[in-house]
Every structure is written in C-alpha cells, then in structure tokens.
C-alpha cells in the first residue's frame, strides 16, 4: 500500500522552512532524507508525521535525541503502556518482549526512569516503542547520532532485520550520505526546504544531478579501505 502526501509545507515566523512538497512512499520501501544541517530535514519528518497522524499507528516517529522522546519523571514501562493505550491496544507483554529483544534490550529493567539507562539504550527503547503499532512507516531522525559506532551499527542492523520481517517502510533522516547509501534504496536530497533530487541510491551515487547532491556525493566517505 502506498502512502502519499501532497502540498506538505511549513512556515514559521514568516519564513518558509519547507516549500510545498508531494511525497509518495511504497510499502516496505527504505528511503533516506539527506541534506546539510538547517535544510529542514527534521521539520519535514515532523510535518509528515503530523499530517498522516501518528496516533492511528500508520506512521511512527523516533526523534533524534532520547530527551525529545522520554519524560525523565516517568518510568520506561509507563511510556510503553501509554503508547499502547494511545494506539487503543491492551497491554501485550509478549509483543513487548519481542520488540525489546529485536532491539537488543531483552534483559533491561523497565521499572527505572530513562536516565537510569545509557543514551544508547534509551534511543533503542524509543525505536522499539515506535514499532508497537506495527506502523506502515517508521521515521528515524538521525538514529545513530546519539550512539557510539558499535551500538549504532548494531541498532541499524536490528531495525533492518525487523523491517524486513514486516512490510514497514522507513524514512531515515540523516546528514550523512555514507549512512544513507548503506541503509536506503532511494534517496531524497533536501536543500533549503526543497527536495531537489529524488533518485534510486545507485543512480544518485553514480550521476548526482543537483549541486547539493554532487556536494554530498563528493564528500560521501572519509576513506576507502583496501580489503
């Protein structure tokens, strides 16, 4: 099933942050939204979530930092139950332990408050929580930026495996084309609030058309390893 949105735009204090944009996302598709800082990537993610409506379980959004996702005064279990209730689901401990295990959190203590966990664990908890309602689209805003590389790579791997088993589509928001190229089959390049290029990953890497995409491709990796 295809998700499509037309005329998505955001204006704030008289400035246009996001110019009117039409988006279509196929079922199970993995898309990366790439662009420099300040180009409006997070804004697009928020606007898309708000437009489709997160509450009905169609789209789920995991913010960049756990501080933007979890109330420090409430336990992790409280957050989980609250998310279930918001989706109209009754508590399902089996589903919960499956999702937590999928993100490598099977033995974690949920009775503690978020700050009792490392930031990496919090981030994975937020992603697990986003998957509760089996959304058709999962939006991940810079999921690796709060994580150490080893944990970041493991997290992306776990998410990948979970998404492959369902038909959930992913929108990966990142400034890093290297990461995007490894994790997505289609790339949207955002610059100054406009999607300036929309192409299959291989095509974009081989023949970037826009100036923004050419800059991203030129600075794609730090180094190439002979191995």
């Amino acid at each position: 099933m295809t998700l499509s949105v037309t005329g998505l735009s955001v204006r704030r204090a008289g400035h246009t942050i996001l110019h009117p944009t039409d988006l279509t996302i196929e079922s199970g598709e993995r898309i990366a939204l790439v662009g420099p800082s300040g180009s409006g990537k997070s804004t697009l993610g928020h606007a898309l979530t708000d437009r489709i409506g997160g509450g009905r379980g169609v789209v789920a959004h995991a913010p960049q930092s756990p501080d933007e996702a979890l109330d420090p005064l409430r336990t992790l279990q409280f957050h989980w139950r609250e998310a279930e209730r918001a989706l109209g689901l009754s508590p399902d401990p089996g589903h919960q332990s499956d999702l937590l295990a999928a993100l490598g959190l099977s033995r974690a203590d949920l009775t503690t408050r978020p700050w009792g966990w490392s930031r990496g664990m919090q981030q994975r908890f937020v992603i697990a929580m986003a998957l509760i309602g089996a959304p058709r689209l999962l939006i991940l805003d810079e999921p690796t930026s709060a994580l150490d590389p080893v944990i970041a790579a493991a997290t992306m791997e776990l998410v990948d495996r979970h998404l492959s088993a369902s038909s959930t589509a992913m929108l990966l928001i990142t400034h890093d084309l290297g990461l995007a190229a490894r994790r997505a089959e289609r790339i949207w390049v955002l610059e100054a609030g406009r999607i300036v290029e929309d192409a299959a990953t291989a095509a974009l890497l081989a023949r970037p058309a826009s100036l923004a995409a050419r800059r991203l491709v030129a600075h794609r990796n730090w180094a190439v390893l002979p191995c």
């Binding site: 790579a153 990461l179 490894r182 390893l225 191995c227």
Partner: peptide, 13 residues
C-alpha cells in the same frame, strides 16, 4: 572497524 563500514563512514573497495 566493522561498525564504521556498516554505517558508511568507511567504504570497502
């Protein structure tokens, strides 16, 4: 090193 490859910070030839 594997993590950096998986995250696209490094690329194999």
């Amino acid at each position: 090193r594997e993590a950096a490859l998986a995250l696209g910070a490094l690329e194999r030839i």
